[in-house]
């Protein structure tokens, strides 16, 4: 078990008080490819950002890798994310001034556990994993959307995180690229990587290991 969420409750206060998440309980096992689905506004993205430790304004308890995250300071959480979580977003979010390789290296350099050469080797290895090794030295702003998304996955992997959190990872991609990204995720899970993805894409969700369907802030299928 790599993630345990206990009675997660979340309110929005703007524009008026509104309960988004109404007491969610679930666990995620290691090596699972989990899809969270549901209609717009059901709270699935909100849940993902709570699980990713970036949103701390919630009630309930969150445990990842045996560590209780609830109540930790922002800086502790930042260090935790750096080491244990990888992110893939809908709009890729690579740093445009840096090469693809440098983008992948950044989280590892922040972690500061290995020498620059080691980090570079690891980063190249991750790029190879997503089939982007030929573009390593290209400026990330010069890459296509699908290529950027694959580099973003390599970046999420570079510190060998416990979980990869993906928010609509294929939402902005065409069919061919979506399939490519999905295949990469599948391959990663086969090596024991845990992935939690929020998605609108039912085809994508159906192929994953497990689906949590949400509606009105509650889990309706798990």
């Amino acid at each position: 078990m790599v993630l345990k969420a206990t009675n997660i409750i979340k309110y929005f206060h703007e524009p008026e008080d509104f309960q988004v998440l109404k007491g969610l309980n679930f666990t995620v096992d290691k090596g699972t490819f989990l899809s969270i689905v549901g209609k717009s506004g059901c709270g699935k993205s909100t849940l993902l950002y709570i699980l990713s430790s970036m949103d701390t304004d919630y009630e309930g308890q969150l445990e990842i890798n045996g560590q209780l995250l609830t109540g930790k300071s922002q800086n502790e959480l930042a260090r935790f994310r750096n080491q244990n979580l990888g992110f893939v977003f809908q709009f890729h979010y690579l740093l445009p001034e840096f090469s693809a390789l440098k983008n992948v290296m950044l989280p590892a350099m922040k972690l500061g556990r290995f020498s620059k050469e080691e980090i570079e080797n690891t980063a190249m290895e991750k790029l190879r994993l997503v089939g982007m090794e030929d573009y390593a030295l290209k400026m990330s702003s010069k890459l296509s959307g699908g290529q950027q998304q694959r580099v973003a996955i390599a970046r999420a992997l570079v510190n060998n995180p416990a979980i990869i959190m993906a928010d609509e990872p294929t939402g902005n991609l065409d069919k061919a690229n979506s399939i490519k990204v999905f295949d990469i995720f599948m391959e990663l899970t086969s090596k024991g990587q845990t992935i939690i993805a929020v998605t609108h894409d039912n085809e994508f969700a159906e192929k994953s290991h497990r689906i949590i369907e949400m509606s009105d802030g509650k889990i309706v299928r798990s």
Partner: peptide, 16 residues
């Protein structure tokens, strides 16, 4: 602003 958000998501702290 987007780069800053992504750096933070990757684990960069406020002081960084």
């Amino acid at each position: 602003i987007k780069d800053i958000a992504i750096l933070k998501a990757m684990g960069f702290e406020g002081k960084d």
